[in-house]
Design a protein around this nucleic acid. Structure first.
Lengths: 219, 219
DNA sequence: AACAAGGGCTTTGTATACACACGACGCGCA
DNA sequence: TGCGCGTCGTGTGTATACAAAGCCCTTGTT
């Protein structure tokens, strides 16, 4: 794989998983030495990260990992609500019912998977598949790209909240309701169920105590 | 100014103004010679353009200017409707009435400006200012960034349609209605007026005969 | 003691040279 | 004559060297 691509994915994963905390300075020379590559692909990776909004230029001091305050989370969910509801609406109008019926069935007994692994990768893989299907059904590449960017930042928020099995089970039920609404071609219901899910998810995310610690750059 | 920044802006302007047509291959060496800079800043510029969606990687053969079909325009307006209506709604809820009242007053006699210049830069400057004020009033940086990207592609669409003075006058009236709705804090009306404007704008854009010529890469 | 100016150092911005990969063209063989 | 393989060329991917710009620290002055 290209070195720049690998550096980009690695740094992105580090930021999303909070191994790199907000305010952390990312120097080109440091990174090139740590990753064993030259500065050129590192520059490309940092440029892409900044375009994604995960890092910000820091006036002559390279780039730093972006902060993520409670206000950011609220704003992010505000946009997510706008985009996700629209995507669900379009998916209900244009999507293939059978696809979403199958997803709903999988989600209906997703609770069994929740204890399989401490980080619940199987569950999140299922949710990711559902997102992909919604994107495909909506059939709007511009909407898809906007959603991809939101989900990138959202993955960062997700790692803040402790993975509460009870909340995950409820979220699975909410996702199932969304999938069934789309499968029935009921656009208003798809929007409503999506909105319910996002409201609950936001409440959970804002309840995370880690948000107060999320801006340590004031040192 | 930095060479990479200048190259980015120049190429972006060329694409938006259709001086560079879809399918046009952008070679790094060619551009570096034409712009009088080295390949490094050119690479940065092309990377940013691709992130913006204005260019696409062309299977190892550099990047090409993205196509813009009628379906693309429809999808773009679908996303624009989603984002602009939400932004107008938020602006009506959170914005300063006086700011938008002033904008509405300016727009009310914008028809006089329409004959000042063949390309009507004063009018578009006014619309841009209104977009900025809506962004500021919405107070959501993530929404703002998504809107900025949509408007970038939209600027490309705008250059396709012939600037019809009659349509521009109607658009000014529609903008005024939006501004007044926001000034009154009437969120539902702000959404409705925005939707009306977008519907008309899309009809006008799709009526452009240039859309059929917009994909000459099939040579 | 506080502020301002200057110099040094760190870090990014740019240029260039090299390596590699893909595609195209041409040649040879069936 | 058509297909397949090899070689060549073009263009990107990466590395490195050089240049410029910003910040911090020091030092001098008020």
């Amino acid at each position: 794989m290209r070195a720049g691509e690998r550096a980009y994915r690695e740094l992105r994963a580090d930021i999303v998983s909070w191994r790199l905390v907000p305010g952390q300075v990312l120097g080109e020379v440091d990174l090139s030495e740590r990753l064993g590559i030259s500065r050129t692909p590192v520059r490309e990776a940092l440029s892409r990260l900044t375009a994604d909004g995960l890092t910000e230029p820091h006036s002559g001091r390279g780039v730093v990992v972006s902060a993520l305050s409670a206000d950011d989370v609220r704003a992010l969910y505000e946009l997510r609500d706008t985009l996700d509801c629209r995507a669900a609406e379009l998916a209900a109008q244009r999507g293939d019912p059978e696809t979403f019926r199958a997803l709903a069935d999988e989600l209906s007994h997703a609770a069994e998977r929740l204890s399989d692994d401490p980080d619940h990768p199987a569950y999140y893989e299922l949710v990711d598949r559902m997102d992909e299907q919604i994107d495909a059904a909506a059939g709007n590449p511009y909407l898809q790209q906007a959603l991809a960017n939101v989900r990138l930042h959202l993955a960062r928020v997700r790692r803040l909240a402790t993975s509460d099995p009870q909340r995950l089970a409820a979220a699975a039920a909410e996702h199932e309701a969304i999938a069934r609404a789309i499968a029935h071609g009921d656009a208003p219901l798809a929007v409503a169920t999506t909105r319910v899910h996002l409201k609950n998810a936001l409440s959970k995310a804002l309840g995370s105590p880690a948000l107060a610690v999320a801006r340590p750059e004031a040192s």
